[in-house]
Design a protein around this nucleic acid. Sequence first.
DNA 1: CGATTTATTTATCGATCACTACATAATTCA
DNA 2: TGAATTATGTAGTGATCGATAAATAAATCG
Lengths: 202, 202
Amino acid sequence: MAGRGRPRTFDRDTALEQAMEVFWTKGYESTSISDLTTAMNMKPPSLYAAFGDKEALFEEVIRRYNSQYGARLWGDLERFEHPKDATRHVLMTTAHLYTQDDTPHGCMVVLAAPQADSNHANVNRALRDLRRLTVGNLKNLYARAQHDGLIPPAANIDNMANYYTTVQYGMSIQARDGATRDELIAVADAAMATWPSLISTT
Amino acid sequence: MAGRGRPRTFDRDTALEQAMEVFWTKGYESTSISDLTTAMNMKPPSLYAAFGDKEALFEEVIRRYNSQYGARLWGDLERFEHPKDATRHVLMTTAHLYTQDDTPHGCMVVLAAPQADSNHANVNRALRDLRRLTVGNLKNLYARAQHDGLIPPAANIDNMANYYTTVQYGMSIQARDGATRDELIAVADAAMATWPSLISTT
DNA sequence: CGATTTATTTATCGATCACTACATAATTCA
DNA sequence: TGAATTATGTAGTGATCGATAAATAAATCG
């Protein structure tokens, strides 16, 4: 299992975790290779040998981010019988995750590079595609529920998914601006109060 | 009125408008002086003489942005008798403004530099303070309405303001990701449907 | 007119950017 | 052990960053 040449002096997962924290706090563009090598405790050649260039490292970071935090949000929604409970779980978990003390506040996918066009279009596009997955998750959830009769046929499930996604996106900005966990929970509660009117004809 | 020396060859307001479009599209950091001088059709020394450095130019741009677009949102809310109508006006105007074809989509104050900490902390802070003004506007609106008896004393107006602000923030991300005007209007409608439950005890 | 003032153009500045050539160190394989 | 392989540290690369010095151009003032 151990390779042939000189072994690494750092743990790859730990280094990725350290890189994630920097990207999450400063965003993609404001994070320099120097910031990264400092946080990851290695010199540039080691970083490039292990992760490719800055963009490849970032892509690996967001893959890791998604499997770590996305899973907390979307991983076990099928255990909820009703889509309303699943949606509440998503929003409440969001309020919790976005205000954790041991990570930067807000969602990295929303905050790291929201520019329409920058000098790093690949990164902007990758993050946008990840965000669209979020809406897709909700639409799938609601489509299944509608098929199962838990949401009336007349309900506009696209609007529902767009609405809850919008609230979740907004919570990222709020969290970054210093909103407390309780404040985000209150926002989530308010959003959930809309449910009855959403599932009636729109 | 005309000064003493050689007159400017550009219109200051036009140049600011051109700078705004670049900052709005690419964000603060990704916008280079070179991007700006190209868009503003001038050489660096002219830019620096007329506007100071990049940060001062950006600050002037967001002041202009705020007086142009902020006014459309918050300028004449007193013409609405009921705070619910004022809130609907804000969200509907937001849906309209964020999807205009002759400007970048979404709000520059939300999208230009949402990093928690970057190499331009002044800019991050200035934008965050502007965003907090938004919540403040809503809180003032609701406080007056509560005093006038249009919102029950038991209602939690801080939660209300946080909630509608969150929806508006989220609409910026949605607009940037390609949401249509109709989709944002549907989101605004959904958010307004929450009103009755918000003004009952929370 | 000449003196003064301000703006524009040209041609940069030092700093930092992402990234790498090169020599050396540490491991495995034969 | 020596050859091969991989990682690390030193010391840079050219490009671009934000910002500017110096010369020139265009206006007003006396």
